[in-house]
């Protein structure tokens, strides 16, 4: 089962010497997480910013036993790099790469299921446990610490919600992006329990997506949960009409208005709070917390 990271969670950075990897190292080190190792294709690099660098994930796992691997790669190599981490059975693998070919994502998802690894992404900026650790490229320095658990699909809209929370005096406990790609390895429902169990999280803000049916699974998980924490959901694209994104949606009957209506109905029926105005993310969460 997926677990939220802490200050002690050992993190591996695959592709530590890539441009994105370097940006991350700088941010993550400044943030104070427990980065135990890196991997690089450049065999001459043994140490990077005082972090031991290995030639393969297998070797890194043997010597440092990480619980999370963050993959920095190119669209062409993301499958290969992510597979390496999955086969090494690292419990949580975060693929940050954008524009990964869909067939490669399918293969990643299937492999992660087979090895029972939590695959976050592709196209995920990662996870931040505010004040403790950062695994990914989230600008965590902008996140005030607080009691709101934040789960989303995108990146910039998540940062927007953090700002809105800050404006009403709220902060974030843990923020996780499942990835913006139309296919991703992990659903809202499969990480929901870990946020429910988290003592620091008093309410949840979820930023959904038109594509897929993760919000329906979330509604079901929320309905079944014993402990209730306020759950507020916003899905962007509510006013998009017609057949604009049909190829992405994948089924002929998938019309944006219908999808939104179905998700809204399921979530509201389960007791979640639906937001239709993207400038009221912070305010709505605030009102929900006040009424508890």
């Amino acid at each position: 089962m997926f677990q939220l990271p802490t200050k002690m969670t050992p993190i591996l950075l695959q592709g530590i010497t890539t441009e994105m990897g370097a940006v991350h190292v700088e941010r993550a080190l400044a943030y104070g997480g427990n980065i135990v190792a890196g991997t690089s294709r450049d065999r001459s690099v043994k140490l990077y910013a005082d972090i031991p660098v290995f030639g393969s994930v297998k070797e890194a796992v043997r010597k440092t036993n990480p619980a999370i691997s963050v993959v920095f790669s190119t669209p062409a190599r993301a499958l290969q790099d992510t597979e390496e981490a999955i086969r090494a059975r690292i419990p949580t693998v975060i693929c940050t790469t954008e524009h990964v070919p869909l067939h490669d994502i399918l293969k990643m998802i299937n492999l992660a299921r087979k090895y029972q690894v939590t695959l976050i992404g592709p196209s995920s900026p990662g996870i931040v446990r505010v004040g403790e650790c950062l695994a990914g490229s989230i600008p965590a320095h902008l996140f005030p610490k607080g009691n709101i658990g934040l789960i989303g699909r995108s990146s910039s809209l998540i940062y927007e919600s953090v700002q809105q929370l800050a404006e009403v005096g709220l902060g974030v406990s843990t923020c996780l992006s499942l990835g913006a790609s139309p296919l991703v390895g992990t659903s809202f429902a499969s990480v929901f329990d870990s946020f429910l169990a988290d003592k620091e999280t008093r309410a949840l803000l979820v930023i959904g997506q038109l594509t897929g049916d993760f919000e329906l699974g979330l509604a079901e998980a929320y309905r079944k949960s014993h402990r209730k924490k306020p759950l507020v959901v916003y899905i962007p694209g509510q006013t998009i009409q017609g057949a604009l994104h049909i190829p992405l949606l994948g089924t002929e009957s998938a019309i944006p208005e219908k999808i939104i209506a179905e998700k809204k109905a399921a979530l509201e029926k389960a007791g979640c709070i639906w937001i239709s105005n993207a400038t009221e993310l912070g305010r709505t969460v605030y009102n929900q917390l006040k009424s508890v």
């Binding site: 927007e160 913006a180 962007p236 006013t239």
Partner: peptide, 16 residues
């Protein structure tokens, strides 16, 4: 806009 989530939220807000 940068990013699909913020893009769609922006479109929503303009329409609304």
């Amino acid at each position: 806009v940068n990013g699909i989530g913020l893009s769609q939220a922006t479109v929503d807000l303009i329409h609304q």
